[in-house]
Design a protein around this nucleic acid. Structure first.
Length: 426
RNA sequence: GGAGAGAUGGGUGAGUGGCUGAAACCACAUGUUUGCUAAACAUGCGUGCGGGAAACCGUACCGGGGGUUCGAAUCCCCCUCUCUCCGCCA
């Protein structure tokens, strides 16, 4: 949620940022918010004054009773009734005003960073880097959904049977490849200074609210019947919420956490013929990296996190490109997002495997995630996260790009983790 | 699943109606002392909101919500969570 104080202070910048996010009447919405906030301030002042008078009266009455001046005390009591009445009214007014303000602000996405390109669709994303060689496959090259059957390593039919569509079963070397990738990613994260976290993969509503999945995007998460819990769509939710209502010391920053979790997404309405095989699932595995830092550091850290992700892709010998998302393609809570895509050679498609984002103080404002500056001031921290990496599309690309006559070649960096260098037919 | 106890500041823990935003201790910060470390002493040390250039002032907050009262951390009601014992269990 945007902070009203920031809106007042940087109104024009916020308007420009919101317009990129397709909020076309941003200026008038912000004016409304500022007007409500003004009303909030005056109401708060009036209420405080009222309460102060009441407190003074109560003290006076206490003294009068002690001194035995009963009649004076009684007279004063009747006087407080009026104060009570008006403070009650002001309180209700204030509550309503605060609700109005929150209801308005909660609908606004984060303002896009100044460097975010204008644009409405993925076509307007900016390709910043493209690296790695695009493999030339033979005529009879197979897409990964055929390769997994040929080598019997991932089974969608079995998943269908025990759960439903989008819940594949990994078998044998397929399962081992998953485990290898997870361990590889976690080890690399640790080398880069991230602390490994194993969070619950079920969270409460307050956590969903804190990172922005609730209340707007309820359709993304699976809810758990008869409880207030949700299956996490990403480790970002539990790992960032670790710091909900926390005041960190400046010397603790940046906080660098990483964690592997399964991720669950309903993806309601987004299924179709173009998402075959591993391209889109309801359950998948991902290692997530999360940082919490000082505002002045967040954009440097964003680049550092991209470097980390790029390092992983290079270690796996996957051709990739880095995109700066345009305003129209960005998520609700983010100020700047880089997507990493790998080229899946048989599908001849770029697949998003990582999304690295700076949320600035949009999440921390909801989370009340703050830090104490060296001058003792308490300020909102910035939060960032990125996938490092999401497995299924990586697997798809490895399978397709590395297919040979006699099997699938495992990238050298992974062999110590898989314990085999090739996936072959039985 | 059954029975009981509890929830107070970063931590331990006092506090049964007004002088308590909250004792004391620990931790932390600054200063004095000191060859260094340690110790001792002194001072400071919650958060939100409103006002103010600031010092500071006002107000709210003692798990959450409601109520009684001139006045609630303290009394009443509801909810949530935690702990202990028993049962079950990877």
């Amino acid at each position: 949620m945007l902070r009203i104080a920031d809106i007042i202070e940087n109104k024009d910048i916020v308007i420009a940022g919101l317009e990129k996010k397709k909020i076309h009447n941003a200026a008038s919405i912000l004016d409304d918010a500022i007007a409500i906030d003004q009303k909030r301030k005056t109401t708060q002042g009036a209420l405080d004054d009222c309460l102060r008078q009441g407190n003074e009266m109560a003290k006076k009455i206490g003294l009068l009773i002690k001194e035995g001046k009963k009649e004076e005390a009684e007279a004063a009591k009747s006087h407080t009734a009026k104060l009570k009445e008006s403070s009650k009214q002001l309180q209700e007014e204030l509550k309503q005003i605060e609700k109005d303000l929150t209801d308005l602000l909660i609908t606004l996405p984060n303002a896009a960073h100044i460097s975010v390109p204008k644009g409405l669709s993925p076509d307007d994303n900016e390709v910043i880097i493209q690296k790695g060689e695009i493999p030339k496959l033979k005529e009879n090259a197979l897409p990964h959904w055929e390769l997994i059957e040929k080598y019997d390593i991932i089974d969608f039919e079995l998943g269908n049977k025990i759960t439903g569509a989008g819940f594949p079963v990994y078998k044998g070397k397929g399962a081992r490849l998953q485990r290898a990738l997870i361990n590889f990613f976690l080890d690399e994260a640790e080398k880069a200074g991230y602390k490994e976290i194993q969070p619950p993969i079920v969270v409460n509503a307050a956590s969903g609210y804190g990172t922005g999945q609730l209340p707007d995007k309820e359709g993304m998460m699976y809810g758990i019947t008869d409880s207030d819990f949700y299956l996490i769509p990403t480790a970002e939710v539990p790992i960032t919420n670790l710091y909900r209502d926390v005041i960190l010391n400046e010397d603790e920053l940046p906080v660098k956490n990483a964690g592997y979790t399964p991720c669950f997404r309903r993806e309601a309405g987004s299924w179709g013929a173009h998402v075959r095989g591993l391209n889109r699932l309801h359950q998948f595995d991902k290692v997530e990296i999360v940082q919490i830092c000082k505002p002045e550091d967040s954009y440097t850290i964003l680049e550092e996190m991209c470097q980390h992700v790029q390092g992983l892709l290079e270690a796996l010998d996957l051709p990739y490109r880095k995109l700066r998302l345009c305003g129209g393609d960005m998520g609700f809570a983010t100020a700047l997002t880089y997507d990493m895509e790998v080229f899946s050679a048989a599908q001849e498609k770029w697949l998003e495997v990582s999304s690295v984002s700076n949320f600035e103080n949009f999440q921390s404002n909801r989370l009340m995630l703050r830090y104490r500056d060296t001058d003792k001031k308490i300020r909102l921290a910035h939060t960032l996260n990125g996938s490092a990496l999401a497995l299924p599309r990586i697997v798809a690309a490895i399978l397709e790009n590395n297919q040979k006559e006699d099997g699938i070649q495992i990238p050298a960096a992974l062999i110590p983790y898989t314990g085999f260098d090739k996936i072959t037919a039985l």
